[in-house]
Amino acid sequence: MSRPELQTPPELFYNDKMSKKYNSNSRMVGIQAEISDRCIELLNIPPGQSYFILDVGCGSGLSGEALEEAGHVWLGVDISRDMLDVANERETDFGDLCQHDMGTGLPFRPATFDGCISVSALQWLCYAQTSEQVAKTRLLRFFSSLYATLKRGSRAALQFYPDSTEQAVLISSCAARAGFTGGLVIDYPNSTKAKKYYLCLSFEHGYKTPAAKRAEPEGGAAAAKFDGGSRERRGHRGKPKKGKVAKTRNWVLAKKDQQRRQGRDVRDDNKFTGRKRKDKF
């Protein structure tokens, strides 16, 4: 599937149908919840505190749900009315919504929020949707208004899907120009699917970005494993190439190792690994 950013503006892309899909598709819900939890973790809020968090690009309110579970009060901002309608249907005690385009600058008083999260929204700012919009101006406007509206000492964790390295660099350089310190945290860098970019921003000068998550080589950390790769890789179509690699035991072990690094769920190695089946089966 090509990138939605290249097709239509966000307020049209996330229409009625897409918003419902976002809320009912269990795979999307799972990924969103996982990212939201990671964002909250990256904010590094002292345990037991109940803070006021800004959620930029709140969509159908899945990230808000994660914030509520963590005990915070949140304010969601989104450009798509249909998404906000879906979010509005949820019964929430601690959230509120507002329709706004983050590219025109956040409409909040200075020093009000204790943190900011964003799930898969920032990359939309890299594309000009009308002739009047200039991508870099919009990014700068967003980051400078975010800088103003956050309380000193708070943090922001913004997850996004950059199209290219240049885009990731553009976004982080705009954040730095607004005055933030911080950088990118890339979780599961070895996997194409589970790889996630988080822009972690802070006001502290000596701020070091938190460590990225990596797939554990041992089976112990099951929670850190990416769960989206259940689809089996299809076999080679058509004629097999000449000089095909023999699937020896070593080849199988190396392959399994690679998949473990990608964070996939891989069976443990044992004496049967890579052994041929008996012919009479």
Partner: peptide, 14 residues
Amino acid sequence: AEGVPNLMCTEDEV
């Protein structure tokens, strides 16, 4: 509308 304020404005306005 329905409890959601709409603060959208055009590029000209900002």
